[in-house]
Simulated scan of single mutants.
Amino acid sequence: MNTSKIAARLAELCRQGQFETAQKELYANDAISIEPHATPAFEKETHGLDAIIKKGHKFESMVEQMHSFTVSEPLVAGNSFAVIMGMDVTMKGHDRMNMSELCVYEVNKEGKIVSERFLM
């Protein structure tokens, strides 16, 4: 699968809320996930597909209610692509908030996502 097809598939699965399916289908086993900075909830870097999936479960456990979730059309350049993900969410113990992040992905020669980076 080329980068454009991977980008389209990731956007499609994320729009359906199928994040773990996207990770298992599209990510390399040694993928890395990079946050803007470390927080009490998450390290700055998460290494390996299993750890990335666990990170997703942890985030989901922190959500009280997801009011809406959007994913832009991907912008592809070479072996990288980016989407904007937007959330209207209430996190447990917090007020409702809108979050928007630029998500940048890198794809290897085998057609697997090897890195994701979230920028806010």
Rank of each mutant, 00 (worst) to 15 (best):
N2K: 05
S4V: 10
K5T: 11
K5E: 15
A7S: 12
A11P: 05
A11H: 04
A11R: 06
A11D: 11
E12C: 09
C14P: 00
R15C: 06
Q16V: 03
Q18V: 08
F19T: 03
F19H: 05
F19I: 05
E20C: 02
Q23T: 13
Q23S: 09
K24T: 08
K24M: 10
E25T: 14
Y27I: 09
A28M: 07
N29M: 13
D30A: 13
D30F: 11
D30P: 04
D30I: 07
I32T: 14
I32A: 11
I34V: 15
I34Y: 05
P36T: 06
A38R: 14
A38W: 04
A38T: 07
T39C: 06
T39A: 10
P40V: 08
A41Q: 14
E43Q: 13
K44Q: 15
G48E: 03
L49S: 01
A51K: 10
I52A: 02
K55G: 07
G56Y: 01
E60G: 03
S61I: 00
V63Y: 04
E64T: 01
Q65Y: 11
M66I: 11
H67M: 12
S68Y: 09
S68P: 02
S72H: 06
S72C: 09
P74A: 08
P74G: 08
V76I: 11
V76P: 01
N79T: 07
N79L: 08
I84V: 14
M85E: 15
M87I: 01
M87R: 13
V89H: 00
V89W: 02
V89D: 00
T90R: 09
T90V: 06
M91A: 05
G93E: 04
G93K: 10
G93I: 10
M97V: 12
M97N: 10
N98M: 12
N98F: 09
S100W: 14
L102N: 06
C103W: 07
C103N: 14
E106T: 15
E106I: 11
V107Y: 01
N108E: 06
N108W: 10
K109E: 14
E110A: 14
G111M: 08
K112F: 10
I113Y: 02
S115L: 04
S115H: 03
F118M: 09
F118K: 00
L119H: 07
